Simulated scan of single mutants.
Amino acid sequence: MSTRNLKALFRPQSVAVVGASTKPKSIGAVVMRNLLKAEFSGPVMPVTSEHPSVAGVLAYPDVACLPQAPDLALICTPQVTAIPGILRTLGEQGTRAACIMTSGLHHSLTEDGSTVLEQALAVARAHDMRVLGPNSMGILVPGIGLNASYAHEGALPGKLAFVSQSGALCTAVLDWARPKEIGFSHFIHLGDTEGMDFGDVLDYLGSDPMTRAILLYIETIHERRNFMSAARAAARNKPVLAIKAGRSREGARAAASHTGALAGSDLVFDAALRRAGMLRVDDIEEIFGAVETLARSRPMKGKRLAILTNGGGLGVIAADDLSELGGELATLPEEVIEK
C-alpha cells in the first residue's frame, strides 16, 4: 500500500490516449470526446496509426513518437497482446501512471506461456508505474477538468469520492447524481483491481484535502491487510461508507464470476468494517441515500447535538446512539424552548 505516483494518476498534467479512434461509440473515441469536453487544461495526445488526427487533435502513430512522456496513459487499444510493449515504452520515457481500459488480459497468453496481464504488471513494476484496471471505465476528477473515462455522463465537482469495482454501478450513480446536482471530488472505477486495490486508493483519498467523504462499492478485496490499515487511517479523518456485494452464497458466486476472485465471508467482512470505523450500507437505495446525505451535509464543529423528534421513543434511541458514538446531548436555552 503506497500513494507513490498516485498523483500522476489522479492529478495528471498531461494525458495520452493509446488506441484513440474516430469510430463512433468506440472506447477510444468516447475517451477522447470526454477529455476534450471536460476541458482538461493539459496536453491530450491521441495515439493511433490509423488516423492523422482524432477529434481535431494531432495523433501520433505510436507511443515512441510522443513529444513528451505523459503523466497518465489511458490504454484502450483492442490489441491486447501489444499492451506489455506499450507499457514498457511508456515506462522508459518516464510515464508513471496508466489506466488499462482494455479487457481480457488474463485470458490472452504470450509466447512464453504467461498471460498478457502477468507481463503487463511485471513491466509496470519494473518501471515503478501505477496501474489502474484492467477493464476499468476510467477516472473522473471534475475539480481539475479531468474526465479520463468512457462514461456516457460527466460528473459535477464536489467533495465526495466514489470508488467502485462495478462499471454498471458507476453509470447508475452518475445518472442519478447529475440531475440532483450532486458532485464528486473523485469518481474511480477500479476494474479488475489487478494493478491497484482499495487500500491504495483509500490511502490517497484519506489524506486528500478536496475529499470530505468516501463511498466504496466492494465485491472482493485482494490485499486485505493493506485495506484494513488504509480504512482505519481514512475513517479517522472523514466518513467512509461501503456497500459489500456477495453477502449470500449465491451473491458471492456471482461476484467471483464478475471480478474473478472470491468474495470472502460476509460475517468476517462486516466485523472488519466495524473495526476499521467504516459504516456499511446494504443496497442501492441506501447508496443513493448515503451519497445525497454526504454531499449535502456539513462537517460537525463539536460533540454536542440537539435531537428534534415527534416521538419520545425515537428520541431515546437517538440519544443512546449519540452517546455510544462519543457525542453529547445539547441543552437548549430556555428562550429557545419557549419559542
Rank of each mutant, 00 (worst) to 15 (best):
89 T>L: 10
20 A>E: 00
41 S>V: 04
67 P>L: 04
28 G>E: 06
63 V>G: 05
80 V>N: 10
64 A>V: 03
47 V>T: 02
17 V>K: 03
46 P>V: 05
42 G>P: 01
40 F>R: 06
77 T>E: 10
36 L>F: 10
100 I>G: 13
64 A>Y: 01
76 C>K: 04
33 R>G: 11
41 S>P: 08
101 M>R: 03
31 V>K: 06
105 L>F: 04
83 I>N: 05
35 L>M: 11
72 L>Y: 10
101 M>V: 13
44 V>W: 00
54 V>N: 06
39 E>W: 08
99 C>L: 09
77 T>D: 13
46 P>Y: 03
106 H>M: 11
71 D>C: 05
4 R>L: 15
72 L>G: 11
51 H>Q: 11
71 D>H: 10
108 S>V: 15
38 A>H: 06
12 P>N: 10
27 I>V: 15
97 A>W: 10
21 S>G: 02
69 A>R: 03
48 T>H: 01
49 S>V: 02
108 S>I: 14
60 Y>V: 07
24 P>R: 12
24 P>G: 02
58 L>E: 14
34 N>A: 05
77 T>Q: 09
77 T>L: 11
80 V>Q: 12
5 N>F: 14
71 D>P: 07
67 P>G: 04
15 V>H: 01
6 L>P: 06
66 L>V: 10
6 L>G: 07
80 V>W: 02
23 K>Y: 05
67 P>N: 06
20 A>H: 01
